[in-house]
Structure formats: structure tokens, C-alpha cells
Simulated scan of single mutants.
Amino acid sequence: MKYLFIILCFLAPLHAEIITSNFAFGGGIPFVGSTSIDGVDIELTTTNTESFGATAFRDDTSANIAFVTLQFSSNVQFFSVNVSRVASNEFITNFNLGTPSALDGDLIDIDNRITTSRNDDFGSGNIIFSDINTDTISFEIDAPGALAVNEFSFEIAAVPEPSTYFILFFLSVICVLKFRGNSFLLKKEL
């Protein structure tokens, strides 16, 4: 029975760490860029955007909606984006992931349109999606002001090392033989 416990411990889901990055890898008008973080390639494409400082981007303050897409080389199971300079007449909308799992800071959801509860243009917070499985994140920024996108976080499902598979297989064989009541190493002669 103790072998079964050990095997179940190995079968517990593996979790990778959450990785956070700003957008220092991008630039230009529209703001675009690509990078590789911990072996995950990321490509950012946008329209109607521009740099905001050295590590962020924003909509270009025109009346046009900004479109943002992040493409990952591996599926992400968690994603968060940090925004600031949000006014109550500015919205982040149309996430391809649907409704966020959570919002923090002073962000609120009004009919699937993320905005701020503040009365000025200094709203900020994180838009969080958990329990997802996708390699593409897209959304729109509908903001007459200068809503800024500062950083993002993501998590890739952990993949066990080959040695973990060997240990799991070995322990499974031992467990099966013990439950059958006859170990091939300790078999009694009749």
C-alpha cells in the first residue's frame, strides 16, 4: 500500500512557475516585438498602438480600436495582463478567452468590458485568466485616452523529465507485483 501512495505522489499534477515580463522587447508604431523567455517564444502584434516609456505600450489615442495579440510557442494555462492609465470611458474588450477569472486593483467588468471604478484616468490592475489551454491571447483596447499595457504573466504546463517516467514505471511494476502477492525477486520455490 505504501507503494501506491508513492505512485500517486508522482501522478500529482506538476506546476511550472509563473513567468512575468514587461514589453521592453517591443517597439515601433504600431508596437510589435518578439522574445524568448525560459524557452517559450512569444510574438506580440498590435494595431493602433505606440510605445509608452521603455517597457510598455498604449493605444495611440486615436479614435480607432487597438488590437493586441500575443502568440506563444507553447500552450499557456495561466495568463495575466497589467494595465494602467485607465479612465472610466476606456475599455479592454473581446478577449478570445472569454470572461476573466479575476480582476484586481480598481478594474471592474461592465458587460464584458473591463474598465476602472475610478473617476480619473489613473485606474490600474491585472486582468487574470486561469485554467486555460491556448497558445494565443488576443484582446482589443477601446480608449480615447492613453490606456497603457505594462506587463504580462503566464504559466506553461510543466512537462516531467524522462527520469520521472522511468521512476513511475518502476514503482508501478513493484506495486502490481506486490498486490498480486508474488514478487519475482522473492518468489518461493514449491
Rank of each mutant, 00 (worst) to 15 (best):
F79D: 03
T35S: 12
F52V: 03
N119R: 06
F72N: 05
M1Q: 11
A87M: 07
S74T: 09
N75V: 02
I6A: 13
N94P: 00
D38M: 04
S34K: 11
I137S: 05
T164G: 00
E140Y: 02
I127Q: 04
D41L: 08
I127L: 06
N119Y: 06
T116F: 04
S51M: 13
I65A: 10
E161A: 09
F25L: 07
I141Q: 07
N182G: 00
E155R: 15
G145W: 14
E43R: 12
E161H: 06
P100W: 00
F31I: 03
E43I: 13
A158E: 10
S130P: 03
F10I: 09
T35K: 12
G181M: 07
T49V: 09
V149C: 04
D104I: 08
D135N: 14
T99A: 10
F95D: 01
K188F: 07
D120V: 06
T116M: 09
F57R: 01
D135Y: 04
F25V: 09
N112G: 00
S138Q: 13
F122V: 09
F5L: 12
D38W: 07
F67M: 12
T47P: 04
T115H: 05
T115R: 05
E151I: 01
V32M: 15
E155M: 13
P144F: 12
L14Y: 03
N64H: 06
V40R: 08
D60T: 03
A56M: 09
I65P: 02
S124H: 14
L185E: 07
G33H: 04
P162L: 02
D120R: 04
D131F: 03
K2D: 14
S117P: 05
V83I: 15
T45H: 03
A66I: 08
E17V: 08
S73K: 05
N96I: 01
C9T: 06
G145Y: 14
S51Y: 05
F152I: 08
N182D: 12
S62Y: 07
F122N: 14
S124I: 11
D142F: 09
S88Q: 11
N82W: 08
G105F: 05
N112W: 00
Y3E: 12
S117V: 08
V40D: 02
N119D: 13
L70P: 03
G28C: 08
F10A: 00
N64Q: 13
I128L: 09
S163Y: 05
K178W: 12
E43Y: 06
A158R: 09
S124W: 09
N75H: 04
S21T: 14
S117K: 06
N22E: 12
